[in-house]
Design a protein around this nucleic acid. Sequence first.
DNA 1: GTTTCGGCTGGAAGCGCTTCCAGTGGCTCA
DNA 2: TGAGCCACTGGAAGCGCTTCCAGCCGAAAC
Lengths: 347, 347
Amino acid sequence: MILSVASPASAVPPPPRRATLDEVARSAGVSRSTASRALSGGVASAAAVDAVRRATERLGFVPNRAARGLARQRTDAIALVIPETPSFIFYDPFLAIVTSTVSAACWKAGLQPMMVLMDPDDPVHTIERFLHLGNVDGMIVTSFHHNRPVEDLLKTASLPAVFIGRPPSGSGFPYVDVANRAGARSATEHLLGRGRRHIACLSGSFDMAAAVDRRDGFWDAHRSAGVEPGPCLEGAFTARSGLILARRLLAEHPETDAIFAQSDALAAGAIQALTAAGRLVPDDLAVVGFDDFSTATEVFPNLTTVAQPVTELAQAAADLMIGHLETGQWGDWPQILPTELVVRQSA
Amino acid sequence: MILSVASPASAVPPPPRRATLDEVARSAGVSRSTASRALSGGVASAAAVDAVRRATERLGFVPNRAARGLARQRTDAIALVIPETPSFIFYDPFLAIVTSTVSAACWKAGLQPMMVLMDPDDPVHTIERFLHLGNVDGMIVTSFHHNRPVEDLLKTASLPAVFIGRPPSGSGFPYVDVANRAGARSATEHLLGRGRRHIACLSGSFDMAAAVDRRDGFWDAHRSAGVEPGPCLEGAFTARSGLILARRLLAEHPETDAIFAQSDALAAGAIQALTAAGRLVPDDLAVVGFDDFSTATEVFPNLTTVAQPVTELAQAAADLMIGHLETGQWGDWPQILPTELVVRQSA
DNA sequence: GTTTCGGCTGGAAGCGCTTCCAGTGGCTCA
DNA sequence: TGAGCCACTGGAAGCGCTTCCAGCCGAAAC
């Protein structure tokens, strides 16, 4: 398998020893305690702080994380738990935004974010091992599918946790979410308002709360309008699923004149199927999506969709976690962020 | 911004204190030293090992990572450095494979992988801060663009490092790579073999070694065949770039009868542009890609492409790093893995 | 001039683990 | 029977940091 292995003997020097607080203190002419206080904002005279600061720079001192963690009984790291297999994660814009937002928030707060994924070969165990290892102070969980073992695991990990997206069962974890139900309702009302009367719903998997909530919103709108809701087909939040479900829909429910797709990807897949079947969007069938990610304006016709504030959502989760770490108290939750219908061409 | 903040008073109990080695030792009726040895495979009688194992289970003991790290002077964590902004990373199949492979390899070796991305607002500093914090034993760097500050940074971090993909300048870092040049050559030879004489190359950015090497392979094939190479257009390794470059190509070099695209994404984008322009693939223009990711069989016509063994590549990098951590020595490098031309419909 | 106070300080005791070192006891071998 | 080994063990000394606790000093209060 290996083609070439020419071997220029190791060129990389062994890492030089790092300076310790002791050395900094000595170099600054103060005690270790004072140096420590000066660095971490405890009581210390201006002169001491200054001397320590200078010594720190002179020696290139960087505090040892393990030692600090040991002494303070905290790791200053938090886990971003995404119980999905890596291959999936890398195609989901939602997770991309969540990851980068949470990471940025952590860095700003002096915390180290760590991504915890699931090893497909050994799903529960990798997470368990990580969380129980006591190397994080808390966790932010997202993209959570209803899954007893994992949920139990998170509970027994006895770590503070925040969920992004309502946990499926009433597990008592603090969480933030968007107004899925209201958003779905407004999307459906938009379709009803345009005179559509045979509206189908393409849904993500019902093991996720978002899918359930959006379906309920879809039903709410129908109930209020006194219109019989069309079929609700369950799949996944992906384009591929949209394609498949839309094909099935055309075959089984030819009277359908509108689709509420629970994600932009589902909508995009559906539009692909509709177009392939010679149906015009929005004339023959109107389509509304959910997300307002970049896909929404990359497909033709551009998607009418329910915009959800993912950045704010992730930020809220991070704030909740960070606040708890700092104060020991949970801030207000659940925080439910509003969605907004963005009308474009597809409906 | 926040819609609802009903607040069920904090329901999450404070984490219970964890058992320590001392307690395990006492419970097992041995000394702490013996317990430590029993757990980490040092010399210890079978009876002692067994007693400690049982006590460990009874007490739910999990070793404290910080304490262990402090005592052993190592963190048992390694950084996967991807100097890209998060938004980019999440759409790259190469990185998806690398990430999951490296993670799995680390877990297997008892190491904690940590993803280090670039904060777009503060590119160098986030990495610097992380690496200098001394919380990893080594790093695996990939998707590296030529970038002096970052390269210097990696050097001064004085951590053992392995690159996936040849570092642009001869920086002396151990690395693994695929045979980019040979792969590109074989792709080009395939096109020449089919009688194409006006072959263009759509390239990724030349600040990455892969783009340079693949271009060189493209030229190699032409030189050997005594054929004048067509233009080489530089962009990025993305579908969008493929679309744009192919349009330009059609306008500026209408005689072109084949395209060697340096990635599947580039090829897919190019095919989209060609199809839109009414050109038939492969009849009017043949297209060869590079990667053999899932895109290759998702576009129409299916891509003839150069398959690269990304999983093996990532595994090799992880092995190199892990080996160094265990032995203090670098294994053979560079390891250059072979590519293979997969012939499908597009050429 | 003495007491009181408050701001700073250094010493020392850990945090939970690893590992060196000097045993201890049971064996084998002469 | 005693010397010599060997396998195993516990004590103790750290790893580098934080933090409690006295103690010191000068300034304010009496």
